[in-house]
Amino acid sequence: MISSWTWPDTLIEVGVIMAVMAITWQLARVLSRRLVRMALVNQQRHLPLPGLSNTRTRRLLGLDHPRQAQRTKTLGSMVSSVAGFLIVFIGTMMILSTLGFPMGPLLTSAGIGGVAIGFGAQTLIKDFLSGLFLIAEDQYGVGDIVDLGEVSGTVEEVGLRATKVRDANGQVWYVRNGEIVRVGNVSQGWSNAVVDIPVGYQADPDRVIEIITGVVTGIAEEDQWKETLLETPTVLGVESLSGTSMTFRVTARCVANQQWGVQREIRERSKVALDKAGIPGPAVPFGGSGGLT
């Protein structure tokens, strides 16, 4: 076979193929990262909230967080790796063909081996493909609080094969990406703080709404909470009635994962303001307990 080579034409042809492979690989890496970056920027441009500038929205929602840069790097790396594999495979086949190797039997053997490996690694392939789409679609990232069905908690690691989640008890769960059929993400975009405030049934509803409105307006005007609240909290009014109490509901749109602090602040200040105004709390049945929820 070697004697059939035409020297030095064969080596020159092989060298040209390898040079084209190297140049194409470098171009593919640059283009893949630019395309991924452009896609992410285009996606983020459609996320501004009413009443907020696009710059402040991006900052409040965490769109300028290093996670976005890491996501771009990860996706670009994966796309360039796939492109690199295809370039190397096609280039290798061209070099072998140039050297005179019979390609028919080689491709047939590779096809049969690929099918065998595919059948034996279906679960692994499913996990990797699911992980690729999870990262590409940014369904969740490290630090997000998610509900994955049987497991809920904080995401500590996102891989192509599995996701690492730590629940409220501190237990770490490793969930295969191929087994995730639904995702509830508390941390994506923004969160909604919901506070129910019970008062005595005999209280004047208009007076209670006025007091609570003053409380939430004051919170929204403080510098400490301006960077947390995306809008002034809303007092929806009477949510429910019972024989001994009325419950008023307050909602507040805030930065992701900050709803618990907002809820505690609204409860505490509302309790102080209602007591100061002489608004009675709900009557407590014998042996029971009452309070803000």
Rank of each mutant, 00 (worst) to 15 (best):
S242M: 03
S4D: 03
R67G: 09
F89T: 13
R269L: 10
I209R: 12
S289M: 08
N42T: 15
V183E: 00
F89L: 15
G159R: 07
L132H: 14
V216F: 02
S242A: 02
V199Y: 02
Y140V: 15
I209H: 10
E210I: 11
T154S: 00
A193V: 11
V79N: 09
E179T: 11
P205H: 08
R59V: 15
L35F: 08
Q188G: 05
F89H: 10
F248Y: 01
I145P: 00
D206V: 07
L96M: 12
W260C: 08
L11V: 09
V155Y: 00
M93I: 03
A203E: 01
T293S: 06
L52I: 05
T217M: 06
G281S: 03
I279K: 05
D204C: 03
P285L: 02
R264K: 09
P198D: 01
R37T: 14
H65Y: 01
N42W: 04
P48S: 14
F248S: 00
D204W: 06
R253Y: 09
D127I: 13
S130L: 06
V250L: 00
V158L: 02
F286T: 07
L96V: 09
C254A: 09
Q263N: 12
G290Q: 05
G84V: 10
D204M: 06
I279H: 01
S97Y: 10
P198H: 05
I2T: 14
